[in-house]
């Protein structure tokens, strides 16, 4: 294992900076502002992640230590430090979904997309796997609170309930088709 290489210092482009400045101006001094700023900046990123230049910029502007920013972004499941796929598929691993077979869904989806098993580091619950071509990201979520629809999968923000392996494969195929067009 090697250490991550030193992060190249650099500023996000001016447009991004302006956006971040705006978000910070709106939220400074309010409780929960750091989470809100990070959420907004990530959402603004086309690949839905926080890159290190953004993190450095936010740290400098909010006077937050870099290590604290990094701690926060790796603590909460919502933040990504890696670019996300074109399509994001969330598999709910809540109790009701588990009792109704969500593990099989996760396994078959992983096989279907040809993704290798998650490495040990990172933990089983914070699973985030992206296909090498960047088309799909599979994630798990602790619980969507859609337990009556168990097992539940969210495909690009659309909730699909009562899924079985075949129906999920069909949904994923539909997304693939979309990709080709």
């Amino acid at each position: 294992m090697t250490l991550p290489t030193a992060v190249t210092p650099g500023k996000p482009d001016p447009e991004k900076c302006a956006f971040i400045d705006g978000v910070i101006a709106r939220s400074t001094g309010r409780p929960g502002s750091l989470l809100g700023i990070l959420e907004a900046v990530q959402e603004n990123n086309p690949r839905k992640y926080l890159c290190s230049s953004e993190l450095r910029y936010i740290a400098a502007k909010t006077n937050t230590p870099l290590s604290q920013i990094f701690s926060v972004t790796t603590f909460y499941a919502l933040f990504n430090l890696e670019p996300q796929g074109d399509h994001t598929i969330y598999i709910c691993r809540g109790t009701a979904c588990h009792a109704r077979g969500s593990r099989n869904l996760l396994e078959s989806l992983r096989l279907d997309l040809g993704i290798k098993e998650a490495p040990d580091e990172g933990g089983a619950d914070k699973l985030t796997l992206t296909t090498p071509d960047g088309k799909f990201t599979i994630r798990t979520v602790a619980c969507f609170g859609q337990c009556a629809l168990a097992p539940v999968v969210e495909l690009d923000h659309r909730i699909c309930g009562h899924l079985n392996e075949r129906a999920l494969a069909r949904e994923v195929d539909a997304l693939r088709q979309e990709n080709h067009q």
Binding site: V7, L66, F70, T74, F75, G123
Partner: peptide, 18 residues
């Protein structure tokens, strides 16, 4: 600071850099 959580918590300096 400490990154990650649970058993995967690790001590880091700045942005998890050397």
């Amino acid at each position: 600071d400490v990154k990650g959580r649970g058993i995967y918590s690790r001590l880091i300096s700045d942005l998890d850099q050397p």
